[in-house]
Amino acid sequence: MSDEQIIPFHELLGWMPAWAATALLLVVASVVAIIAHGIAIRLLTAAFSRRAIYVQTLLQRTRVLTRVIIIFIVCVVVTQAAPLGGDARSLLSSVLGACVFAIAGWTAIVAVHIASDLYLSRFRIDVEDNLNARKQITQVRILRRVADTMIVLLALGAGLMTFESVRQYGVSIFASAGAAGLVLGLAARPVLENLIAGIQIAVTQPIRIDDAVVIEGEWGWIEEITGTYVVIRIWDWRRLIVPLSYFIQRPFTNWTRETASIIGTVFLHADYTLPVDALRNHLQEIVGEMPLWDGKVAVIQVTDATDRTIEVRALVSARTSPEAWDLRCDVRERLISWIRDNYPDSLPQVRSAAVPQDRGTVGGIVSQQE
């Protein structure tokens, strides 16, 4: 076929409107890019053995991103040959420019997630001594969410600034110090407040993943820390949702701040005749048989005395807060059973005494005679 017989590419679609021809070219190019990308991924996956688990994981984690990048590159090439006018081509160039920043932000987020997951893969939270693992996981996850937020804001702002009208609007907002800027500042306050609180929590770590806390009268574990709120798994499987800034501005109790081990308390009320030393010896015997006890603390103390009973406090330690709860319940049951079976008279009771008749009483009741 001679050069005179070759039909120029733009003449093949000359019968179509320019926008329709451009849309058709972009669709065809995108389909070809998707097919080529799928074939390339399969070939790369097959090229690496199953032992190259990191390479295969990387291919799976970046599959969608690389597909979008290839589609974008093909669309940029096709746009150069598209039959568009000056204004339409300028608009399409602005759209593609915004896509560049979106893809760059997406790539940065994927890179941050992959790097953080590789770092956290060295730590296990399902072991007894998981304090360091909880510290690292909490810090990395919060900082990753902060990084995601910053990347999204920067990519969104840079992408919008590629449009001339948006750029002028943005400049006018930043240049003015009027009501519009005040409204935007107030609207962004919750976002910035939680963002700053997230950074503070990541650095100072008043809470960590799987910490046992008491907040708003509820006891539970830190299950998830997001960019705006914290999910607390209550002991009865409910979920308490608390704003992230709460843990910076208000007091709360953290049972596992320094270590997962915790001391549990058991309170009993008994009569004054209770032999405390015998009860103390019995506590040592029963905790020695309990696998939940960590072997550190097991003491009996008389902490209060009223006009009728004494208050006995037993302190027992466990490796984790859930084990401490079960240990407390078990110790309480066994101590009560021991007192009931061996010293039933030492259980709380009310005494009454009859006053002798010769002291002005009638039927054992004091008569109020003058």
Rank of each mutant, 00 (worst) to 15 (best):
M1R: 08
M1H: 08
E4H: 09
H10Q: 13
H10G: 01
E11M: 15
L13A: 11
G14P: 01
A18H: 11
A18T: 12
T22L: 11
T22V: 12
V32S: 08
G38S: 04
L43P: 03
A47R: 15
R50L: 04
R50Q: 11
R51F: 08
V55L: 11
Q56T: 05
Q56W: 10
Q56E: 07
L58C: 12
L59W: 04
R61T: 04
R63N: 15
V68W: 05
I70S: 15
I71P: 05
F72Q: 02
V74Q: 02
C75S: 13
V76Q: 14
V76G: 03
V77H: 11
V78K: 01
T79W: 04
A82L: 07
S93Y: 00
G97P: 07
A98I: 07
C99M: 15
A104L: 15
G105C: 02
V112C: 14
H113Y: 03
D117S: 09
S121P: 13
F123C: 10
I125S: 09
D129H: 13
I137E: 14
I137M: 09
V140W: 00
R141S: 14
R141N: 15
V146H: 06
V146N: 06
M150Y: 04
I151D: 06
V152Y: 07
A155T: 07
L156R: 08
L156W: 08
L156G: 15
A158I: 08
A158P: 09
G159N: 06
G159P: 11
F163E: 12
F163P: 07
Q168E: 10
Q168I: 06
G170N: 07
I173R: 11
F174C: 04
F174L: 10
G178E: 02
A180L: 10
L182S: 08
L182V: 09
V183S: 00
G185W: 00
G185Q: 03
P190K: 04
V191E: 00
I201R: 05
A202I: 03
V203I: 15
A212Q: 02
I215N: 00
G217V: 03
E218M: 02
W221V: 10
R233I: 02
I241G: 02
P243F: 09
L244E: 08
L244Y: 09
R250F: 11
W255F: 13
R257G: 08
T259E: 09
G264E: 03
T265K: 14
Y272F: 14
T273D: 14
D277Y: 13
L279D: 06
L279A: 14
H282Y: 13
E285P: 09
E285A: 08
V287T: 07
V287Q: 04
E289F: 13
G295H: 01
A298C: 10
A305N: 08
D307A: 15
R313V: 05
A314V: 12
V316Y: 01
S317V: 03
T320M: 00
P322V: 04
E323H: 09
R328V: 03
C329A: 14
W338V: 02
W338K: 06
N342G: 00
Y343T: 01
S346D: 00
P348N: 01
P348Y: 02
V350E: 05
R351C: 04
P356S: 03
V362E: 08
G364Q: 10
I365L: 15
I365H: 14
I365Q: 12
E370P: 03
